[in-house]
């Protein structure tokens, strides 16, 4: 980035002209987007080379995700942070080292250009922290009401080093379930920021990249079976998917679940289950028992894993069944979520 005299936009809000293919669009792309990303002069088509690709046995990993969130800026992050972290994390939990991202923006007419600049700055900072480059992109403008400020789609490419093979069907009974941090912070932060329920709490989204943490864990515990980024639907959904793919049962220990007081409070008030609250920087890992301690200490040594803890284990019960054992021995089934979790008063 060598643009100390960065041009400013003349407009303060997006108009349909910014999507029209003419001068206004060019100005938008150059001042707001390409100047922030690398390389500074972004082309429609990225041509990629990396030494990692040339290693015999290395595999490409490729993923995509779309991001919509209301509000687009919230304590602990914004939709830009999410768009980078989400795709980086999808790659990382598959064992890939994330390298390149694309970013496509659908922008609502009337959106403040200053907002877009803030989002782009977040993306740039997050990409730099994760060690990925945003190498291609696109923008479209839609009429007022046809989108909610801005929607972002990112795709990511990474390289899985030779010999690494993380997959849910490798999970075995006896494996330990680890998480890297506190559960439900993102969901609670968004609920609070949205303001519909008029609840306030000092809580930030956990939105963070997990690439460095995954590399640290894999170095310390090469036997890691599988990892999953527990986003929408919370860890309950991630664990159900993994248990089903592996054909094992999973039992969680309620007393071990790492939950912030505010998340507990929010759940008690609104009748929500924290296991289903969204996270944006939380992963679940299945590790053979004899490597669990090594994996935990490696996680705890990284910024994204300071609160890492074991929360349960896989066992040879009913395939796909996830249960939660309460402090006094009762157990309940933790099923997949049906629809959206709604606040309740009953």
């Amino acid at each position: 980035m060598n643009a100390p005299t960065r041009p400013r936009m003349r407009d303060t809000r997006i108009t349909l002209a910014h999507g029209g293919g003419g001068k206004a669009m060019r100005e938008l792309i150059e001042t707001v987007f390409t100047s922030a990303f690398e390389p500074a002069s972004m082309e429609d088509q990225a041509r990629l080379t990396d030494a990692a690709l040339a290693q015999p046995g290395a595999r490409l990993a490729f993923t995509t995700d779309s991001f919509v969130v209301d509000p687009v800026e919230f304590p602990g992050g914004d939709i830009g942070t999410l768009a980078v972290c989400g795709t980086v994390n999808d790659l990382a939990v598959g064992g890939a080292r994330p390298l390149w991202l694309s970013a496509a923006f659908i922008i609502e007419e009337g959106t403040e250009i200053a907002l877009l600049e803030r989002l782009v700055a977040s993306m740039k900072a997050e990409a730099r922290a994760a060690g990925v480059r945003i190498v291609t992109g696109d923008t479209k403008v839609v009429g007022r009401g046809c989108a909610d400020k801005v929607f972002i789609t990112t795709a990511g490419i990474g390289v899985i080093p030779p010999g690494r093979d993380l997959r849910a069907d490798a999970i075995r009974p006896g494996d330990v379930v680890l998480v890297n941090g506190l559960l439900g912070d993102h969901g609670t932060a968004i609920l609070t920021a949205r303001g519909d329920m008029a609840l306030s709490a000092d809580i930030r989204s956990d939105c963070q990249g997990l690439g460095h943490l995954m590399e640290a864990v894999l170095a310390a515990a090469p036997g890691v079976r599988a990892a999953r980024d527990a986003t929408r639907g919370g860890i309950a959904s991630a664990l159900n998917e993994m248990a089903e793919a592996a054909g094992v049962a999973v039992e969680l220990d309620e007393t071990a679940l790492p939950l912030r007081a505010e998340v507990r409070g929010m759940c008690e008030i609104l009748g929500l289950d924290p296991l289903y609250l969204a996270n944006e920087g939380t992963l679940v890992l299945f590790v053979p028992e004899d490597q669990a301690a090594a994996a935990l200490s490696a996680m705890r040594a990284t910024p994204a894993g300071r609160e890492a803890v074991a929360i349960g284990h896989a066992h040879a019960g009913i395939a796909g069944r996830v249960t939660l054992r309460s402090a006094f021995g009762g157990a309940r089934i933790v099923d997949m979520l049906v629809g959206e979790q709604l606040p309740r008063i009953c």
């Binding site: 809580i203 505010e262 409070g265 929010m266 008030i269």
Partner: peptide
């Protein structure tokens, strides 16, 4: 206040 969550 309920466990760090505030509401009128």
């Amino acid at each position: 206040e309920v466990s760090g969550v505030r509401r009128e």
